[in-house]
Design a protein around this nucleic acid. Structure first.
Lengths: 145, 145
DNA sequence: TTAGGAGTTCAAGTCGACTTGAGGTCAAGC
DNA sequence: GCTTGACCTCAAGTCGACTTGAACTCCTAA
């Protein structure tokens, strides 16, 4: 359970190491996110260290919103072997661009939210919170700014 | 269509101004994200400028992942009037925290992705892309770094 | 030898946020 | 008078990514 593992892990151990539920691990396999996982005599999945590394990458890709079909496509390209590196690059680079855009959008939303939060904080601290709205729910700040 | 609008807008115009589909505008209303919208003689929705401002805020909140029930809760608090500013603050501040966390997660994923992207870019430029994988799909980079 | 726990498969359910669609009303322009 | 287009309501469908559940097989330890 420490680090004395011989690079052959059961699904439960992989779950613990990747943070993905066992059901999710099987689901990812069905979805083609891993090459077929090996089995032992009893038909149980046996994961390698590389499987775990790749699953961790998958988790990151998912965390950044890459759709499963796109991850699968990437796996397929890698499995096809050398010669399609340009397409792999396109795939990842395109995703990177989307993630950056997403972060920009998020930052913009954050600015709006943080503006309101500091407004509240200021008025709560000054005890003048009840002066925040003169007229209706909509105009918390007269005209942004 | 310019800015000659008299603060009384039809759903189509609001859709154009907020980027939300007309169906979505009705849906948000059903979900309690707006106080009841006024209607004209024919029963059609008539939005005010404040409605539009608020909808734009809603769009930002949604863009940052705030769930509809939480936005509704916020609207309710505002509608209840002065006295609950602390709870409003909690709500928004809590969301701000989650958004910041989300951005941190995203940044972490981005680092992983960008690492791979630059790796590909380098090898593609050098014409050595086919040397990237010696052994299986999993270990693209020997040990991260 | 029996109870547990960890696996297995396959099917179905869930969740949130919309989106789509059917069927109807109304005012304006030809 | 008749079509067109914007609007209305209410119900149902979609989408992605899991999650849950039922029914079964193993292996191990008491």
């Amino acid at each position: 359970m420490t680090d004395t593992d011989e690079a052959a892990l059961g699904i439960g151990e992989v779950s613990a190491r990747t943070g993905l539920a066992t059901h999710t691990l099987r689901f990812y396999e069905d979805e083609g996110l891993l090459a077929e996982v090996r089995r032992n005599a009893a038909g149980r999945r046996v994961y390698t260290r590389e499987d775990v590394d790749w699953l961790r990458v998958c988790a990151k890709l998912r965390a950044s919103g890459m759709p499963l079909p796109e991850i699968r496509r990437y796996v397929e390209l890698v499995r096809e072997g050398p010669g399609n590196e340009a397409e792999r690059y396109e795939l990842l680079h395109g995703h990177e661009t989307r993630v950056r855009q997403q972060m920009a959008d998020l930052q913009e939303a954050l600015d709006t939210i943080h503006g309101k939060v500091t407004l509240y904080a200021r008025h709560l601290a000054a005890g003048t919170a009840d002066q925040l709205w003169r007229d209706g729910p909509a105009c918390e700040e007269p005209a942004a700014r």
